[in-house]
Write a protein that binds this DNA or RNA. Sequence first.
DNA 1: GCCGAGTGCAAGTAACTACTTGCCTGTAAG
DNA 2: CTTACAGGCAAGTAGTTACTTGCACTCGGC
Lengths: 217, 217
Amino acid sequence: MTDPRTRIIEAAARCYALSGSRGATTRRIAEEAGVNEITLFRHFGSKEALLDLVVREWGAMQEPPSLPDPPVDPIAELTAWVRHQHEEISKWRTFIRRTLAEQAEHPDAIKTTCDSSTYSSAHLHAYVERLREHGFLLPASVRRAQDTPHACVMLPATLFTDALWRDLMPTMFAGTAEESIAAYVRLFAQGIGLREEYFSSSTAEAGASGDALRLAS
Amino acid sequence: MTDPRTRIIEAAARCYALSGSRGATTRRIAEEAGVNEITLFRHFGSKEALLDLVVREWGAMQEPPSLPDPPVDPIAELTAWVRHQHEEISKWRTFIRRTLAEQAEHPDAIKTTCDSSTYSSAHLHAYVERLREHGFLLPASVRRAQDTPHACVMLPATLFTDALWRDLMPTMFAGTAEESIAAYVRLFAQGIGLREEYFSSSTAEAGASGDALRLAS
DNA sequence: GCCGAGTGCAAGTAACTACTTGCCTGTAAG
DNA sequence: CTTACAGGCAAGTAGTTACTTGCACTCGGC
């Protein structure tokens, strides 16, 4: 067994994710950690201090990954990035849901989730700028360039909804997560005006994208 | 003053949205309703019965709006539809966040939210099919037709994220809600292969879309 | 052998929870 | 005028909550 301190923190995170800060009673946390309830108070002083620490530790773990510089294979790079984020969010979905729901009561707790999402969108935007500089995109004159920033919101937003609620609304999503991610990336690529010749990624495992037809060749 | 019964229900909804089912104590609900705590029990029997009723009444209110048949002005129709849904979700955002977060504890409460989202995506898909039948879309041979169902997920998913969290993450979203909605609709329209000539809606108030350049004319 | 830190156990506190009982009052219909 | 009833008020119940105190145990370092 690991030391009781980390056991308590992990148990608190589980209880919080499952039942929220009100539902995560000290008794349940101690039980879940296989520890006496008093030990909890001796280590952290109060339940509030413990939950604060849990949320803060979790926030420190979340570092939004950046996209390659310079870009080489846009579809493959975006797919990998989206898949990674999808997995991270899925792993913590109940925790994130709770934190977002309790935002009114614990405003600071949400900051990390908020920042993480904002950075994610900012990373994407910077990457698109790099794509433009390296000639991967159609010239601005033949696309709606003013929609690019919104495309950089749409992809993470979709990703967020999919990862957070795929388990609750299975019928809403068409196909598996992997299929959806591939489609989201292609739609995003189309939205930012990726040149057609870069759509068939060299490392694309999704065979479906292979028969993508030329758009306005 | 209205009758105490409806006052209690409304107060319960507010308390629930703000603090969840655990945080919404009978005392607070009664206080919020300007009613004696006992009256609450005389009317509804128990706190659980009251909250059940609140969630059920709310669910009955939510009827996802359908899109025009036959379609006439796709961009205008989609924009109106998205705007309406955005407003509805925004109005109930704290309530929805709570319901989604407490899904593990009240599995049936989430059904209406779930169904509503699924129907929304289904309505959209049916509308796109109508667009195709009426010749608004490019032929399947010059677009990635397999991505259409995912585009029908992406739009409501983005809408959902935007409406639920625009207030918490203002920096994430580029521009006002109205600007974003217009851009989401345009990106969606591009994703399903709407013919370029239908992009400038006859009733489009967003002047920005007026200078949209021809794509692959 | 001993000492102190870390932990467990028994018991208890004050506050809060959902919920009950009994009684009183205002009002509106018969 | 009476009667029925919806609602308010006072008081109280049993259970749960966070948190405290006091005491005993164990185990590694000196």
